[in-house]
Design a protein around this nucleic acid. Structure first.
Length: 294
DNA sequence: ATGGCCCCACTTTGGGGA
């Protein structure tokens, strides 16, 4: 692997975001937890990479996408033995999402509402204890939508409309809410090393980007974009054509936050170094820290 | 996208991904 490219964890924010130096909350009165999202591209094929990262990184909550496994075949014990509670929403062969949490938690929904005919496993939602209350966390695997011009693209847009409607309902609770996952949307040109290559791709269509902006316009904050305006901040590099070595990446994995969550946001980091491991996922984790009054 | 991969499944060939 090319050592020159291994910059390790990419800190995209300073510490104590939103709080002036010297005004940190007193010890003992806060509850800090880290919430990560990672498209794992096959949880069984990726088990060593995942467990190694869990041991080293120790996030409190992990939203996984593309587990590519039915619930019964999910490697639950290997992850539980590291101190995690595990809830899955899988299907055979492809798609599939999961939530791992060191804290015991309750699943509130499996599957995105709004279409009883939709059998694809792309959404799981839970309430996780945080501070004196809860944080609601969803693991989202938004449809790819390629090729544009087939039924896959309207399915993507329809799924995004359903997500917007559901997010609107969740925001009415006025709670800390984290919608984390693989959105399969490149929000802006700066979110791709070579935006011109993506102009005919479902990930970068005006309709896809518009639907993502509509989500943000509900009052959801893109965690990474609270911390940096930089253009070289990516979460996916294709396996093909030496994309990682060239840093030919895109930013498509996002944590979207309600105001109540954004107000508690600290550091946001992208674990870029996981892309250089043996048998890596083509996506890397995005990790956000939250501090709640306790 | 000069071409380059990877995972899964009723596996040696095709579906799906991004």
């Amino acid at each position: 692997m090319a050592d020159a490219d291994l910059s390790g964890t990419q800190a995209v924010s300073g510490t104590e975001a939103g709080r002036p130096a010297g005004k940190s909350i007193p010890l003992g009165l806060t509850d800090t937890l880290t919430i990560a999202t990672w498209n794992i591209n096959g949880v069984r094929a990726r088990l060593d990479v995942l467990t190694g990262w869990l041991k080293q990184r120790g996030p409190d909550v992990v939203c996984l996408q593309e587990i590519k496994s039915v619930d019964e075949a999910f490697p639950r014990e290997a992850i539980e033995s590291l101190g995690y509670n595990v809830e899955t929403h899988g299907q055979k062969g492809f798609n599939g999402v999961a939530i791992l949490s060191k804290r015991p938690f309750e699943v509130t929904r499996r599957g995105l509402p709004g279409d009883s005919e939709d059998v694809q496993a792309r959404y799981i939602e839970a309430e996780i204890p945080a501070g004196r209350g809860i944080v609601r966390v969803a693991s989202i695997y938004l449809p790819n939508g390629n090729p544009v011009g087939t039924e896959k693209f309207p399915y993507k847009l329809s799924w995004m409309a359903r997500l917007e409607a559901h997010a609107r309902a969740l925001l009415a609770f006025e709670e800390p809410l984290v919608l984390a996952g693989d959105y399969n949307v490149i929000p802006e040109p700066r979110d791709a090393r070579r935006p011109e290559v993506w102009v005919n791709d479902a990930l970068f269509q005006p309709e896809s980007r518009g639907a993502f902006r509509a989500l943000a316009a509900l009052g959801l904050t893109d965690a990474v974009r609270t911390t940096t305006d930089a253009g070289d901040v990516y979460t996916f590099w294709d396996y093909q054509a030496g994309a990682f070595q060239k840093n030919d990446g895109i930013r498509i994995d996002h944590l979207m936050l309600s105001a109540e969550a954004a107000d508690r946001l600290g550091k946001v980091e992208i674990d870029r170094d996981t892309r250089a491991l043996e048998k890596p996922s083509d996506h890397v984790p995005v990790v956000a820290e939250f501090t709640f009054p306790a």
